[in-house]
């Protein structure tokens, strides 16, 4: 169950993790993209953390909405609209009275797919979001499940995003967006929110 406190904790942990792995994320992106995923994500999540620390929030929806706007306007790459759409979808779902974490994550995945039009197997963050969603539904989300979902993007050929221009050359590399999404869900576990 998400609360104002644990949602902020979750997103703060995510910002810290992204900051710590900034160079690694960019390294992954250098292989098959434009090499800025680490810089973009750390700029966006740092702005998000700052925005979340600045005010008192009454609802989970407000927390997620504020986070969404920071990510949307500060990331500056494809991940801005993607994470922004995910969190806008999650914020909307969090406004429903009888919602739970699984439906909120579902709304986030729907937001990403609506924006980026990626399907499972396209070697994008969608692969991680949908695997996590499936595991959440079964009550079996663990770090290992997340790691496996991220690693599973490596053998795929990219069909969406900057990596898709590389065609077969994209095979053999982990998708950077899948990796950063993996961090997001690992922070859910690390924050004790599950």
């Amino acid at each position: 169950m998400l609360t104002v406190e644990n949602t902020i904790k979750w997103l703060d942990l995510f910002a810290d993790k992204v900051a710590a792995e900034k160079d690694y994320l960019s390294e992954l992106d250098q292989a098959i993209g434009d090499g800025d995923h680490g810089a973009n994500m750390s700029r966006g999540t740092a702005a998000m953390k700052e925005a979340l620390g600045k005010q008192n929030f009454g609802t989970v929806q407000d927390v997620l909405k504020t986070a969404a706007m920071s990510l949307l306007s500060k990331i500056g790459g494809a991940s801005g609209p993607l994470y922004g759409s995910a969190l806008i979808g999650m914020a909307k779902e969090a406004g429903n009275a009888d919602t739970d974490l699984t439906s909120i994550v579902q709304a986030g995945a729907d937001g990403i797919q609506k924006r980026g039009k990626a399907e499972p197997g396209d070697k994008t963050m969608v692969d991680v979001w949908l695997t996590v969603l499936h595991a959440l539904k079964e009550g079996k989300l663990t770090d290992a499940v997340i790691d496996q979902a991220v690693q599973a993007t490596a053998p795929l050929k990219a069909k969406k995003g900057r990596a898709s221009y590389l065609g077969d050359r994209s095979v053999g590399h982990i998708d950077p967006g899948a990796m950063s999404s993996g961090y997001l869900f690992k922070c859910l576990i690390a924050g004790g929110i599950l």
Binding site: G77, A78, S79, P81, G84, S85, R115, G116, R162
Partner: peptide, 11 residues
């Protein structure tokens, strides 16, 4: 030009 421009445009 490229994908993320389109996504931001759509938003």
């Amino acid at each position: 030009d490229l994908g993320s421009s389109k996504m931001n445009l759509e938003m």
